[in-house]
């Protein structure tokens, strides 16, 4: 199953990020790939997976994978643990302020293995 978003055409490589069990229910984990940190979220209440950059643009902290998941209206979001800046998991947009938009990645699940669609930041 592929959890698509706007960047799927740009995917350069599908990175094996571990098994489904490595990611807590309604929570995230962080992976290191080519020096980049990618936060992957198992949004089990919605039955969806998301991935974003791990860096919160507010105070430039590598932290978003430890953030809390939730929804605002229909939009799935993650809240940074430091100052509760929230970002849309679909578009990466900051929902409660004017922080920079964060990078999002597509995720696919094949036989309990989690793959994240990596592409380079342009």
């Amino acid at each position: 199953m592929i959890f698509e978003n706007k960047t799927i055409e740009e995917v350069e490589v599908w990175v094996n990020a571990g098994t489904v069990n490595d990611f807590p229910k309604d929570g995230g984990s962080n992976i290191l790939y080519e020096g980049e940190q990618i936060a992957i979220f198992n949004f089990s209440t919605l039955n969806k997976w998301f991935a974003t950059q791990n860096l919160c643009p507010h105070k430039k902290q590598m932290i978003l994978s430890r953030g809390m998941l939730g929804t605002e209206g229909e939009t799935p979001k993650v809240a940074c643990p430091y100052h509760k800046k929230t970002f849309s998991l679909e578009t990466g947009e900051n929902l409660n302020g004017c922080e920079d938009t964060i990078k999002t990645y597509p995720v696919k699940i094949e036989n309990d293995t989690v793959f994240v669609g990596y592409y380079e930041i342009k």
């Binding site: 990020a17 490595d22 990611f23 984990s29 962080n30 992976i31 940190q37 590598m62």
Partner: peptide, 16 residues
Amino acid sequence: KRFAHFSNTDQDDPNQ
């Protein structure tokens, strides 16, 4: 096991 910065390596956060 949850007390790890990365789930795919045992490294600490290199940005720290």
